[in-house]
Write a protein that binds this DNA or RNA. Structure first.
Lengths: 201, 201
DNA sequence: CCTACCGATCGGTAGG
DNA sequence: CCTACCGATCGGTAGG
């Protein structure tokens, strides 16, 4: 064994992420986690304070990555058409997800197990992120680039379709993250542009 | 109290569905469930065999509803264009979700806690359902109704965007299930029809 | 539907 | 990082 204890904390975080993804946060015990690291459960507490601290780390780290990505897009495409901003935001979002599928899955599925006040803070951040997408849509809508009846519904629709990448993306697949992002962006943008508003078939 | 014990089993299932949605399956204990029904945890076992039996009931009941809905669409629109079949499939899918948001949330988020052989059976059914959507897309694609590079990606995209209705649908909202379904169908179908295949922005 | 209870497991602490 | 252990809680059973 050429094990180094230098970044034991990081190892713990990685294994925890994998287990939380596979079994869910609640169904993962500290003994499961310890087993993966070949130590005793009690020993984990020399490196971390609690089980929830691990969940918090994952959820807020991913939240930061998503924010950094969209803020970078905002800065770099200040004067671009809404279509361009939306496309880039989608592509960067998908890239963040595919860079760490496990952490993204935990971020998307396990955040509700956070306790106060972290839960509230998390929900607030998520709402702010959704708001950023909604503002792009509003801008495209008022500029006649996009046609939509309900910006809120359109926002939820877009985020749903790009978030779920984590559940089926395979790094071994035919398309890389950027290609998937652009393909999804094309579906979405074309849907927003050529909206026929028929409400009965 | 004018309580009737006639359908105690059904009451248990309803409360279990709500708890599994709110807290997740693993984090819900039989004592939580018993508390909601004002009985002792042990008493639940006069009506049910196990906790997992409840989860199984919910997951497979919803699976059946989704299958019934799409099979009805298939029968009634045998010779229609793929666009029509896709639209109706989407609308009916959204209707099934909105008719029982809680059960749909459990179906979508908690199925992985099923154990063998039910887990395998469930995944098989889900794959078959996805296959039905993919076949509609393939038909529309070969008939030049739809333009897409990757039917598999398009299928995942569509199901993601319509499944997530459960997380934001409010029966008190401005749009009813049918309207939401048609609006989502319009986004999706227009996106599939007017596909510009640019892969770089 | 209840009381009484089972063995297993939980997150976490004390003290080295 | 370990041993030894804590009180709490888990899904479920026996027997009424």
């Amino acid at each position: 064994m050429i094990a180094t204890t230098l970044n034991r904390r990081q190892e713990i975080e990685e294994k925890a992420t994998l287990l939380f993804q596979e079994r869910g946060y609640s169904a993962t015990s500290m003994r499961h986690l310890a087993l993966k690291l070949n130590i005793e459960a009690a020993s984990l507490y020399s490196h971390i304070k609690s089980k929830e601290e691990l969940l918090r780390g994952i959820c807020f780290k991913m939240a930061s990555l998503f924010f950094e990505a969209i803020e970078k897009v905002e800065q770099e495409s200040k004067d671009s058409p809404a279509e361009t901003v939306l496309r880039l935001s989608i592509v960067e979002h998908v890239k963040v997800i595919t860079q760490d599928i496990s952490a993204s899955a935990v971020f998307l599925n396990e955040w509700r197990h956070l306790s106060a006040p972290y839960l509230e803070k998390f929900v607030l951040m998520r709402d702010q992120y959704e708001q950023k997408f909604m503002e792009i849509l509003k801008r495209g809508s008022s500029g006649k680039e996009f046609i939509m009846m309900d910006e809120k519904l359109a926002t939820q629709y877009i985020l749903s379709s790009i978030n779920w990448t984590h559940s089926w993306y395979k790094s071994s697949g035919r398309m890389n993250a950027e290609e998937i992002g652009h393909q999804l962006a094309s579906f979405i943008i074309n849907g927003l542009k050529n909206q026929n508003t028929e409400l009965k078939n």
